[in-house]
Write a protein that binds this DNA or RNA. Structure first.
Length: 699
DNA sequence: TCCTCGTAACTTTTT
DNA sequence: GTTACGAGGA
């Protein structure tokens, strides 16, 4: 039986079965597009006998890729990891790992992350002696990225040259530095694949021949460079299906554009278009509000606009609560979440969405206080934590001693007496790589720094020799040799325990490499590309995330926090109608995540940075949907206060004074004092510590 | 050369 | 509330 057609509606069926010409599926929110893609993979393998490893499926995030892998594995009843389900960036990195030498890169090139990139730009600006007020590293980074996303087109270059007359010089010196470090930034990875394919037709052919069919999810958020990669892989064949929704285009700042979806038909002649407008997710009231909101948007793509419909019931009203301030808003959301729990919902049914991630701070506190399990999705990125980056920088440098940013990070960490002066000397000897540079510089050095550098070179050489055999062992030996724990203890007296725990977590991941059959090289690549992976997502916890991170997800209960002008829409969009359009689409994405309950909240006053409170205005988008929104009075402002008084007793956190607990690093202990979110614990081995209860487990 | 302390500036959104 | 940077002393 054709189980890949099971319980699909006519349009979905058509989308699954169509393969004779390029296919553009315009799929509205909640219209079952992921199902279409998964079932299409089933159809291609089962009916057309295309092997799974000859199907390329591209998703927007690593999380989505992993989810799709799981679904495909379940649907095809197989155990092996599908190889070619990935994001554009990981696909490109995979290709380059194999082909880099054709572009003049070494095979062991590194991917510079946000921080490495910014530091390199700072170096460039310093070297060129440019005014830091005018040339803000952050803005320059943005400009270079925009240039790359537009294939360095002259008109874009002209545009940025007006603002930054030296942008061309900066750009080329920056590229020079990257090349010297055998490094690529995020945009280079994509751009280099296009370059590779255009300069080497035989390599392009080789990769074309690898795939019989290509599927792309979230097509509305691909940019020109990604589009070009697709074109090269597809060639003049018809074997492509893309799925997207211009109404949900929320990444124009990364080169996407809702109009791009119109260009698909131009670039792939003979395209068939199928619309999926039936929504299986939300109740009528939520959908109608969403339709109303988006109908006010402008743009050419509106000819492609989808009007969602459902045969579900009217459902609950959308609710709006205005709280006195941000703290109360967070407390209210936590309290209200508890009510849903009492009504029979799971914590994992609830998501809190926000426009800006700093709003998570109040929410986190409120949830700790209320003793509700929560998870911040994508907020703090594990691989971007300083302590993780420190250890990884050692490994990175051992792998690629050209890696300038890794070198500069670790050469004096922990401090071994190598400062600016010594570094300048080493730089003079730089030819091939930093390790060689140090060795060549050694004879001209003396005293403390000479000894320190000798030790450093030996340390790195030692790592280089053993790293591939047993990365976990090498890393923990490194940890001991450089006395990293002491370093953390001194540098971060407040939270060094957490940081030690993080490093231990990294070691665990390294240990699991051989089990998963991954090389360290692949691991390092993943760490730079896959940042907000939440491996704990099965947890029964409330999810707190940005609207961007919520893309593609759905929840029975959705809160949108901070529905205020200046927050949502962002204040930066006020004087730019184009950006304001994006904010509108973003709000559309936010509300279409909800299946049953949509609760909007705002704070009448919000503390901008530390203490200064500012009064706020309700979001302008509320006007557009006001006929669907019921403004309700939150049950007095006392609630959060009551919460504060009851919580020190400890019942709400699930802990009590005198309770036996376990900590990942300190081992067993007993709670001496409870002051949520913190607790004083006397540990068996290390004595008394004050730490956050979320790191404790009951025994 | 390292370290401490004060201040300014800051937060979209993420691969 | 946090972080990045610069000045000045050890």
């Amino acid at each position: 039986m054709s189980d890949f057609l099971e319980s699909l509606n006519p349009e979905q069926k058509k989308a699954v079965l169509h393969f004779t010409s390029p296919l553009l599926v315009l799929a509205g929110a909640g219209s079952g597009k992921t199902r279409v893609i998964t079932n299409k993979i089933m159809f291609l393998t089962k009916e057309l006998d295309i092997p799974l490893n000859r199907i390329l499926a591209i998703t927007f995030t690593n999380k989505a890729a992993n989810e799709m892998k799981e679904r495909v594995k379940a649907a095809l009843n197989i155990d092996t990891e599908p190889q070619w389900i990935s994001t554009f960036h990981s696909l490109a990195a995979k290709i380059l790992r194999i082909e880099a030498q054709h572009l003049g890169y070494g095979k062991n090139f590194v991917i510079y992350d946000e921080e490495d990139t910014k530091k390199t730009i700072r170096e460039v600006l310093e070297e060129l002696n440019l005014d830091k007020e005018l040339y803000k590293p952050e803005r320059i980074k943005e400009a270079i990225s925009q240039l790359k996303q537009n294939f360095n087109q002259q008109d874009v270059l002209d545009f940025f040259s007006m603002q930054y007359p030296h942008i061309k010089k900066i750009y080329s010196l920056y590229q020079e530095k990257l090349a010297l470090a055998n490094a690529m930034d995020f945009d280079d990875i994509l751009l280099n694949v296009v370059k590779l394919f255009e300069e080497n037709p035989e390599i392009r052919k080789k990769w074309q021949n690898k795939f019989d069919y290509i599927l792309v999810d979230e097509y509305q958020d691909t940019n020109k460079v990604q589009h070009q990669i697709l074109k090269h892989i597809v060639g003049d064949r018809d074997c492509i299906t893309v799925v997207g929704d211009p109404q949900q285009c929320i990444y124009t700042w990364r080169g996407a554009n809702p109009e791009n979806i119109l260009d698909f038909e131009k670039d792939f002649p003979n395209t068939t278009v199928i619309k999926l407008e039936r929504n299986y997710r939300s109740t009528k009231k939520i959908l109608e509000a969403a339709n109303k909101l988006i109908s006010a948007s402008k743009g050419k793509w509106k000819e492609k606009v989808l009007t969602l419909w459902t045969d579900k019931g009217e459902g609950e009203d959308i609710k709006l609560f205005k709280l006195e301030n941000d703290k109360q808003e967070a407390g209210f959301i936590a309290l209200y979440t508890k009510k849903f729990k009492e009504r029979g919902y799971d914590y994992s049914d609830v998501a809190i969405l926000m426009r800006m991630s700093f709003l998570s701070r109040n929410l986190e506190e409120a949830f700790i206080r209320a003793g509700i399990p929560y998870q911040i999705v994508g907020g703090l990125k594990f691989y971007e934590r300083a302590e993780i980056k420190d250890i990884l920088a050692y490994l990175r440098f051992a792998f690629n001693p050209k890696d300038t940013q890794a070198f500069k990070r670790i050469v004096n960490l922990p401090s071994r007496g190598i400062g600016k002066k010594t570094l300048e000397k080493i730089e003079k000897f730089y030819v091939e790589n930093w390790l060689q540079a140090i060795e060549d510089a050694l004879p001209s050095l003396k005293g403390k720094s000479k000894k320190a550098l000798e030790d450093f070179v030996n340390l790195i050489k030692d790592i280089r020799q053993n790293i591939t055999k047993d990365p976990a062992k090498v890393a923990s030996k490194l940890y001991e040799t450089i006395q990293y724990e002491n370093y953390l203890r001194e540098k971060y007296p407040k939270d060094w325990e957490d940081r030690v725990a993080n490093v231990k977590e990294l070691f665990k991941a390294l240990e699991e490499l051989s089990i998963k059959g991954k090389t360290l090289e692949e691991f390092l690549e993943e760490t730079s590309l896959q940042q907000a992976q939440d491996s704990l997502q099965e947890q029964n916890s409330v999810k707190i995330m940005t609207v961007h991170a919520s893309k593609g997800l759905e929840f029975p209960v959705v809160f949108v926090a901070g529905v205020e002008d200046g927050i949502f829409p962002s204040g930066r969009a006020f004087d730019d109608p184009y950006q304001m359009e994006e904010e509108r689409r973003l709000f559309y994405v936010a509300i279409t995540r909800a299946k049953e309950h949509l609760i909007l909240t705002m704070a009448k006053a919000r503390s901008t940075f530390g203490n200064s409170y500012q009064t706020t205005k309700p979001s302008r988008f509320l006007k557009d949907i006001k006929e669907f929104v019921k403004v309700l009075k939150p049950k007095t402002g006392k609630q959060p206060k009551q919460k504060q008084q009851t919580s020190p007793v400890g019942t709400s956190t699930g802990f009590m004074v005198g309770q036996l607990v376990k900590h990942d690093v300190f081992g067993k202990g007993v709670i001496k004092e409870l002051t949520p979110p913190k607790a004083k614990v006397i540990f068996e081995k290390v004595g008394e510590k004050e730490l956050l209860t979320k790191f404790l487990k009951k025994l």
